[in-house]
């Protein structure tokens, strides 16, 4: 275990490898903290940059949609419901697997991948 012991001793003097939370403790007021950060009075750990082409939550532009149903055809998780009256689709985030196949297939770019990934919430609707 000599090799590992060396590595562990080195690790003692290094920063933790994990991505850290913005601040050590939960601030009493988030807006105040953000204000302080702007003025340079407080410091927060910047979030890790999201790579280009990240497949986050899918944004749906209802105006652009022409109701061609291609997204319904390729979606592996049956995320999309077709609204007969409006000839538009309804996107169910809870079923989405973020494969972004619908983004590729959409002929009018009504669907786009956003960088949003913090999607868990207490509100279910």
């Amino acid at each position: 275990m000599f090799e590992m012991a060396k590595e562990l001793l080195k690790q003692l003097f290094r920063k933790p490898f994990t991505n850290r939370f913005p601040s050590k403790h939960v601030p009493k007021s988030t807006t105040k903290l953000l204000k302080n950060v702007k003025e340079g009075m407080a410091k927060v750990n910047r979030p890790v940059p999201i790579p280009e082409g990240f497949r986050g939550k899918i944004a749906y532009d209802k105006e652009k949609c022409i109701g061609c149903k291609l997204c319904i055809k390729v979606c592996p998780a049956n995320c999309y419901d077709f609204l007969e009256k409006e000839r538009k689709v309804k996107y169910h985030l809870s079923r989405c697997t973020f494969c972004a196949q619908c983004v590729d297939v959409c002929p009018v770019n009504a669907l786009t991948s956003t960088k949003e990934f913090l999607l868990s919430d207490y509100k279910t609707h």
Partner: peptide
Amino acid sequence: ALAGNRITKG
């Protein structure tokens, strides 16, 4: 960074 997803890369 290459695929856009960490595990199920699609």
